[in-house]
Amino acid sequence: MISNAKIARINELAAKAKAGVITEEEKAEQQKLRQEYLK
């Protein structure tokens, strides 16, 4: 099960992506976390 901290990070990265200020490194982290969440 995914931790609350990881869910919070997913939401934080989603907000950054929506604002258009996300880095390529953060995009990769976001994809990794989303895949983990979906498992």
Results as ranks from 00 to 15, higher is better:
Met1Arg: 12
Met1Asn: 14
Met1Leu: 12
Met1Gly: 13
Ile2Gly: 09
Ile2Phe: 05
Ile2Pro: 14
Ile2Asp: 11
Ile2Val: 09
Ser3Gln: 09
Ser3Pro: 12
Ser3Phe: 02
Ser3Asn: 09
Ser3Met: 06
Asn4Tyr: 02
Asn4Gly: 13
Asn4Arg: 12
Asn4Glu: 14
Ala5Gln: 11
Ala5Cys: 08
Ala5Arg: 08
Lys6Leu: 15
Lys6Met: 15
Ile7Met: 09
Ile7Ser: 07
Ile7Leu: 13
Ile7Phe: 02
Ile7Gln: 08
Ala8Asp: 12
Ala8Asn: 09
Ala8Gly: 07
Ala8Phe: 02
Arg9Gly: 01
Arg9Ser: 02
Arg9Tyr: 02
Ile10Gly: 04
Ile10Thr: 04
Ile10Leu: 15
Ile10Val: 06
Ile10Trp: 13
Asn11His: 15
Glu12Asn: 04
Glu12Cys: 06
Glu12Met: 05
Leu13Phe: 00
Leu13Gly: 01
Leu13Tyr: 00
Leu13His: 01
Ala14Phe: 07
Ala14Thr: 08
Ala15Gly: 07
Ala15Ser: 09
Ala15Trp: 05
Lys16Arg: 13
Lys16Gly: 00
Lys16Gln: 03
Lys16Ile: 04
Lys16Leu: 10
Ala17Gln: 12
Ala17Trp: 03
Ala17Arg: 07
Lys18Met: 12
Lys18Gly: 06
Lys18Ile: 12
Ala19Phe: 06
Ala19Pro: 00
Ala19Met: 10
Gly20Gln: 05
Gly20Phe: 00
Gly20Tyr: 00
Gly20Asp: 05
Gly20Ala: 04
Gly20Arg: 05
Gly20His: 05
Val21Glu: 12
Val21Pro: 05
Val21Met: 11
Val21His: 10
Ile22Gly: 01
Ile22Thr: 02
Ile22Tyr: 02
Ile22Asn: 01
Ile22Glu: 02
Ile22Phe: 03
Ile22His: 00
Thr23Cys: 04
Thr23Trp: 00
Thr23Ile: 01
Thr23Lys: 03
Glu24Val: 10
Glu24Ile: 08
Glu24Gln: 09
Glu25Ala: 10
Glu25Met: 08
Glu25Tyr: 06
Glu25Asp: 11
Glu25Phe: 06
Glu25Gln: 10
Glu26Asp: 03
Glu26Ala: 00
Lys27Leu: 11
Lys27Phe: 10
Ala28Phe: 09
Ala28Leu: 14
Ala28Trp: 11
Ala28Asp: 12
Ala28Glu: 14
Ala28Lys: 13
Glu29Ile: 03
Glu29Ala: 02
Gln30Ile: 13
Gln30Asn: 06
Gln30Glu: 14
Gln30Tyr: 15
Gln30Gly: 06
Gln30Met: 15
Gln31Glu: 15
Gln31Met: 06
Gln31Trp: 04
Gln31His: 10
Gln31Thr: 12
Lys32Gly: 06
Lys32Ser: 08
Lys32Ile: 10
Leu33Ala: 04
Arg34Gln: 15
Arg34Thr: 15
Arg34Ser: 13
Glu36Arg: 02
Glu36Tyr: 02
Tyr37Met: 14
Tyr37Gly: 11
Tyr37Pro: 04
Tyr37Lys: 05
Tyr37Asp: 14
Tyr37Asn: 08
Tyr37Val: 12
Leu38Gln: 14
Leu38Met: 11
Leu38Asn: 12
Leu38His: 11
Leu38Ile: 10
Leu38Gly: 09
Lys39Tyr: 06
Lys39Ala: 15
Lys39Ser: 14
